[in-house]
Simulated scan of single mutants.
Amino acid sequence: MRILPCLAAALLGAALILPKLPQAAAADDPSWQTCVGATTAPGDRVASCTTVIDGKTETGRRLAGAYCNRGHGLTEKRELDAALADLNEAIKLDPAFACAYTNRGRVYAFKQDLDHAIADYDEAIRIDPAFAMAYNNRGDAWLNKGDLDRALADLSLAIKYNPQLSVAYGNRGFVYYRKHDAAHAIADFTAEIRLEPNVLAYINRGNVYRDAEQLDRAAADYGEVTKIAPSDARGWRNRGLVRLFQGDNKGGLADYDKALQYDPADVNSWNNRGQAKLRLGDKKGAAADFRKALELQPDLKTAKAGLARLGEVR
């Protein structure tokens, strides 16, 4: 699942949406613009918001916004205690700042303190009952607490209030997947891909197709991952597995070669490439791959069984 702050960009959230801030001369200040910019990198956001805060030129919601956005940048850098301090200050300065509660809830979620996270999302929604990101993030928290029905309800509200919030479709699709509702999961991942094609959406939809034994469609989705992120091992190894399921051992072997090029620590890729080599008659290569898999995971039964078939005892 993906949890968003009030800044909406990517995977674990990242796109600052400040509430309507009052106009001021500082609106033209480069540090302010960088502090509140939706595409500012986390390190630059922290630096520029610090300049705004230290300059002591802002008050009220604008100053709260600078603390909130610096807290966002620190969260992206996973400096969670510092982020929490900034978001506490933003809320102290402006207790009706829904965005700050949502961003603080996100910090608590990263700290695995889901009860405090939900309490902050509750407060953000109380202040702004149509705050789609707060519903998305609370849905993530409910999922992580194992309450799929509450997660589904919140993610549906996120989509109701912002039908263009692609991450909410992806998160709801994952909940449907957990509920074994393949049709709705596929529909939501398809909606996410239509709004914002990304690696995780294609992998998730591919996983649903794979589990539903729609292997050609699964392979196609994993193939999209290899196109948009060719150095991401997940696309190669997932498609490699599907190709082995389809009996395409040469294709599977080629995909696992790529997967191991980009992620040589993945034990399953070593094991599965060994299986492909074994099926193709490369006994020496298969044995080497099984041994490598067992170096990484000594109790891997499939690798042990593969070596046993080759006459080796491990």
Rank of each mutant, 00 (worst) to 15 (best):
L4E: 08
P5D: 15
A8K: 08
A10R: 10
A15H: 14
L16W: 00
A26D: 12
W32I: 04
G37V: 09
D44E: 15
R45D: 04
R61K: 04
R62W: 05
R78E: 14
L84N: 08
L87R: 00
I91C: 03
I91N: 01
L93H: 07
D94L: 05
F97D: 04
R106W: 13
Y108L: 13
K111C: 02
Q112Y: 09
D115P: 02
I127V: 05
I127W: 04
D140S: 08
K145C: 05
D149Y: 06
L152Q: 11
L155G: 00
Y161H: 10
P163F: 14
Q164N: 12
F174H: 12
F174K: 06
Y176M: 03
K179I: 12
H184A: 12
L195S: 01
E196C: 02
Y202C: 01
Y209C: 00
L215A: 05
I228V: 15
A229Q: 07
A229N: 10
S231V: 13
D232P: 05
W236T: 03
L241P: 00
L244S: 05
G247W: 06
D248M: 13
G251S: 11
D257S: 05
D257V: 07
Y262C: 08
D263V: 09
D266G: 06
V267E: 13
V267A: 15
A276Y: 06
R279T: 11
L280P: 09
G281Y: 10
G281F: 12
K284N: 13
D289L: 13
K292N: 14
Q297I: 14
L300G: 07
K301W: 07
G306K: 03
L310F: 02
